[in-house]
Design a protein around this nucleic acid. Structure first.
Lengths: 191, 191
DNA sequence: TGCAACCGAATGAACATTCAATTGCACAAC
DNA sequence: GTTGTGCAATTGAATGTTCATTCGGTTGCA
């Protein structure tokens, strides 16, 4: 029974993700989501109070999924290696999960994000992790002192930009491109 | 008459921009756009065949506006200074025109972008300019050799990331943050 | 006189949401 | 181990609203 429940909810999530990837927020009616997930329209409303809530929950779902995958690094590795590793991991994850990437991008630049910010717990697991990680680097004198938004812009910005370039078909991806980018970032921030 | 026409069309553009900034694609009906622009609903259809076309044209409009403002640099300045100047100009422009930034972001991560790509002339004025600019730097040995998507990711990525951070209220902006970021980028790519 | 610009009420389709009815299952009673 | 009971899960047709788009008509200018 619990498994059933879990399955359906997840099926709804995945279908929403898939359809939004293809048709955007505007282009994906609840009925289509239901179809694609092999449930009745009404069933969605058993799990979610409204379409907005579905979207909001889906965002949380995505964030959890992503965080789970990215921050599994061997703490014993030298800092520089972890710096490279996490970044590549992030890029690889989003390239493997384009629907998630696209959805999250859309979510951020939509009014949903404002809604979420105002009504949510601020438990940004991923952000916390990153914060710690950069602080560690700065404190041990490996990278420059920078405030958090600065380093985040420099570390994450090129990653999302690169993923967009690929995901929107501007260019092909090569490992050496990625190596280049993270190396450039490192050159920029190392002490 | 031509001035009238221009005025109304532009009023429609600006209203759309404003409303989409606040309510997103989904939340801005044609009737509202008309209201806000002080024209009748039907008038919009005199200028645009459909809502989709309005959005598509608005994107072109935004791109033109942006390009006009950014690439006015004194060619005689040393390369490094131009490298800094263009970047700051870009950031400043988007911070001054948050609606444009938000709209373009939304546009890119929506299916509209795919539509545009398939049916459009590939005259990316801004992209061409950038391409030339980076090539110049690489040829004269001032910055490293990189393929275009790589350097774009590293140059533009942090800019948009930073603008998002501010625009979504994650942090306040200071000039020194920006100075920091572009300096880091420069350290990363210089030879 | 003609045509482009403009108007805004009317139309119809698309869609989110509701709801009355059905199913399936856990658990208690016997 | 059979039957009964209640509640969660599920269904999908019906409802009502919200729009994009249309259109017949008006205005104003060349």
């Amino acid at each position: 029974m619990n498994i059933q429940l879990h399955n359906k909810k997840e099926a709804i999530f995945e279908s929403t993700l898939h359809l939004i990837y293809e048709y955007g927020f505007r282009g994906t009616p609840m009925s289509q989501i239901a179809n694609h997930a092999n449930v009745a329209t009404g069933t969605i409303y058993h799990y979610f109070a409204s379409k907005d809530e579905l979207i909001l929950e889906l965002f949380k779902y995505c964030r959890e999924q992503t965080n789970e995958h990215i921050f599994s690094v061997d703490k014993n590795l030298p800092y520089k290696e972890r710096f490279f590793f996490i970044w590549k991991r992030l890029v690889a994850y989003y390239l493997d999960h384009k629907e998630i990437f696209r959805f999250v991008e859309q979510f951020y630049s939509s009014p949903y994000f404002a809604i979420m910010q105002s009504s949510q717990d601020p438990s940004y697991y991923g952000v916390d992790k990153l914060h710690q990680f950069f602080e560690e680097g700065a404190k041990s004198g490996i990278i420059r002192e920078m405030n958090f938004p600065t380093i985040v812009s420099v570390y994450i910005g090129p990653a999302t930009s690169y993923i967009k370039n690929i995901s929107y078909g501007f260019c092909k991806m090569t490992d050496s491109d990625r190596d280049n980018i993270i190396e450039i970032i490192w050159n920029g921030v190392k002490k």
